[in-house]
């Protein structure tokens, strides 16, 4: 069997025996800087915009709903099952499909609509990243299949960066089968290194910061 054969080769080459203890790995290196909320918001917006993403900052959940209503006017959209979108009243906007819990239906809808609307579990301001944790509330396909993605994020979820994320979530696998970090629109530079957005994933990403 290849498993035992490979592990045996590894141990022989390293001079180790099965089950032999190991010294501690180098200590975890996480440095969380202090960044004031206003600065986080400003940084988040400038990073997303530098990647040709769009951002908006709205004062209230109602204003978030207004903003999204404007953005999807005349278009078709699907919203994830995130409670925050329900609270904002975004899920009940006219023309928004939501509450889908069956994968076949979700795939079909996401492949048809113009816009996918989600919240985000966190945002990382130093890179302009959205952190999407798969759950009953957030499917993977809503932020992936439609050509445009709108993420509505309350400001208190904006973290400083990866180090803070992994401080809060030392092991994301404890709560999800999938955590995806999204930093700007889908892009490729595979033909003559010319940057093209929206190759497989959404070509437009809009981050709406609430508060």
């Amino acid at each position: 069997m290849s498993r035992d054969n490979i592990l045996h080769k590894v141990r022989t080459a390293l001079g180790r025996s099965a089950g032999q203890a190991v010294a501690d790995p180098p200590p975890v290196r996480l440095r969380v800087p202090e960044i004031a909320m206003e600065d986080r918001i400003a940084l988040m917006r400038s990073r997303v915009e530098a990647l040709a993403g769009k951002t908006a900052r709205v004062p209230t959940m109602e204003a978030a709903r207004e903003f999204v209503a404007g953005a999807i006017a005349g278009k078709t959209a699907v919203a994830s099952n995130a409670p925050y979108l329900v609270e904002c009243g975004i899920s009940s906007l006219p023309g928004v499909r939501t509450g889908i819990r069956e994968v076949g239906e979700l795939t079909a809808v996401c492949a048809q609509v113009d816009i996918g609307i989600t919240s985000a579990d966190y945002a990382l301001c130093d890179t302009g990243t959205l952190v999407m944790i798969a759950s009953p509330a957030e499917g993977r396909l809503v932020s992936l299949l439609p050509p445009a993605h709108i993420a509505v994020v309350p400001r208190e979820r904006i973290l400083t960066g990866l180090d803070e994320l992994f401080t809060i979530l030392p092991d994301p696998a404890a709560q999800t089968s999938s955590m995806v970090l999204i930093t700007g629109p889908s892009q490729t530079a595979d033909i003559e290194q010319i940057l093209i957005r929206g190759v497989h994933g959404p070509g437009q990403v809009t981050v709406v910061i609430v508060g």
Binding site: I100, L106, E138, R140, L162, S177, L181, I182, T183, S186
Partner: peptide, 18 residues
């Protein structure tokens, strides 16, 4: 960072949509 980083731990879990 790259546009997408996928951190994947096992198949879809109970309750997850996709």
């Amino acid at each position: 960072v790259s546009v997408y980083t996928s951190f994947l731990a096992g198949p879809r879990r109970a309750g997850e949509v996709d």
